[in-house]
Computed example of a mutant assay.
Amino acid sequence: MITVSACLIVKNEENVLARCLLSLKDLVDEIVLVDTGSTDRTKEIGKQFGCRIFDFTWVDDFAAARNFSFEKAEMDYIYVADADEVIDEENRKRFMDLKQCILPEIEIVQMKYTNQLQFNTTYNFDCEYRPKLFKRNRRFEWQDPVHETVRLDPVIFDSEIEIIHMPEGNHSKRDFGIFRKLITKGIPLSKKLRSMYARELFISGEDQDFLEAEDYFTSLLSEDRAEEELKIIQCVLTRCGRIKQDGAQILKNALKNVACGKASAEVCYDVGEFFMEMGDLQEAVIWFYNAAYETECELNIRYSKELPLLKLARCYELSGDITQSKLYQELAQNAVEKEALRD
Rank of each mutant, 00 (worst) to 15 (best):
L8E: 07
I31N: 12
N67R: 15
L103T: 07
Q249Y: 00
Y316P: 03
K185C: 06
L309Q: 09
K47S: 10
L327P: 00
Y79F: 11
T114S: 11
I2Y: 13
C235A: 13
N257I: 02
F134W: 12
Y328E: 10
C260R: 05
P131G: 12
E148H: 05
E105A: 08
E214L: 01
E214H: 03
G272N: 09
R41T: 06
D60M: 08
H171A: 15
G261W: 05
N15W: 01
L22M: 06
E13W: 00
D209M: 08
G241W: 05
M196S: 15
T121D: 12
V109M: 09
L33C: 11
T295W: 05
R239Y: 09
R130Y: 14
L193R: 13
L133F: 12
Q110W: 02
S5R: 06
N12E: 08
Q110E: 12
V32H: 05
E71T: 11
D175V: 04
T149Q: 07
Q118K: 14
F49S: 04
E229N: 13
H147L: 07
L22E: 15
A83Q: 05
A83C: 12
A332I: 04
D55F: 00
I108Q: 08
A248I: 06
C235H: 08
A313V: 02
G261F: 02
